[in-house]
Computed example of a mutant assay.
Amino acid sequence: MESLYLLIPLSVLLAFCIGGLFWWAVKSGQFDDMEGPGHRILHDDDIPSEANENEGADKKNN
């Protein structure tokens, strides 16, 4: 019975900490774009876009 006097306040404190971390994650934008990273991995380019622009300019000069 005495252990409940320690465990109940600790569980309430833990619940508030988890709730606070979740609130912070929502407010900082962690859950804004859930689909973007999944789509970006499908459209992986081997050459960065700056290199593509430079390559096009080189072909025009030749």
Rank of each mutant, 00 (worst) to 15 (best):
M1I: 09
M1W: 12
M1S: 14
M1K: 10
L4D: 04
L4M: 05
Y5L: 07
Y5R: 05
Y5F: 03
Y5V: 06
L7Y: 12
L7K: 05
L7T: 01
L7D: 08
I8K: 05
I8P: 02
I8F: 05
I8M: 09
I8A: 08
P9N: 03
P9W: 01
L10E: 12
S11H: 14
S11G: 08
S11A: 15
S11K: 14
V12R: 04
V12G: 09
V12F: 05
V12L: 10
L13S: 09
L13N: 01
L13G: 15
L14S: 09
L14Q: 10
L14F: 15
L14D: 07
L14A: 10
A15P: 05
A15H: 01
A15W: 08
A15R: 02
F16S: 02
C17S: 15
C17L: 15
G19L: 15
G19V: 04
G19K: 11
G19M: 13
G20V: 01
G20P: 07
G20H: 12
F22Q: 01
F22P: 00
F22E: 01
F22M: 00
W23E: 03
W23G: 00
W23N: 06
W24D: 14
A25F: 02
V26G: 00
V26W: 08
K27D: 10
K27Y: 11
K27N: 07
S28D: 00
S28K: 07
Q30P: 01
F31N: 02
F31V: 00
F31P: 01
F31Y: 05
D32C: 13
D32K: 11
D33V: 06
D33N: 10
M34V: 00
M34Q: 02
M34T: 01
M34N: 02
M34G: 01
M34S: 03
E35C: 01
G36N: 13
P37E: 02
P37A: 03
P37S: 04
P37V: 05
G38F: 13
G38T: 12
G38M: 15
G38K: 10
G38N: 07
H39V: 03
R40Q: 12
R40V: 11
R40I: 10
R40G: 06
I41R: 15
I41C: 10
I41N: 08
L42N: 07
L42P: 06
L42I: 07
H43P: 04
D44H: 12
D44C: 08
D44K: 13
D44Y: 03
D45F: 13
D45T: 07
D45A: 14
D45H: 12
D45I: 04
D46Q: 12
D46C: 04
I47G: 02
P48K: 10
P48L: 08
S49G: 06
S49C: 00
E50Y: 04
A51C: 09
A51W: 14
A51D: 15
A51V: 08
A51S: 05
A51F: 09
A51Q: 13
N52R: 15
E53K: 13
E53A: 04
N54M: 14
E55A: 03
G56C: 06
G56E: 06
G56W: 06
G56Y: 03
A57Y: 13
A57G: 04
A57V: 06
K59Y: 13
K60I: 10
K60W: 00
N61F: 11
N61S: 07
N61H: 12
N61T: 09
N62Y: 06
N62Q: 14
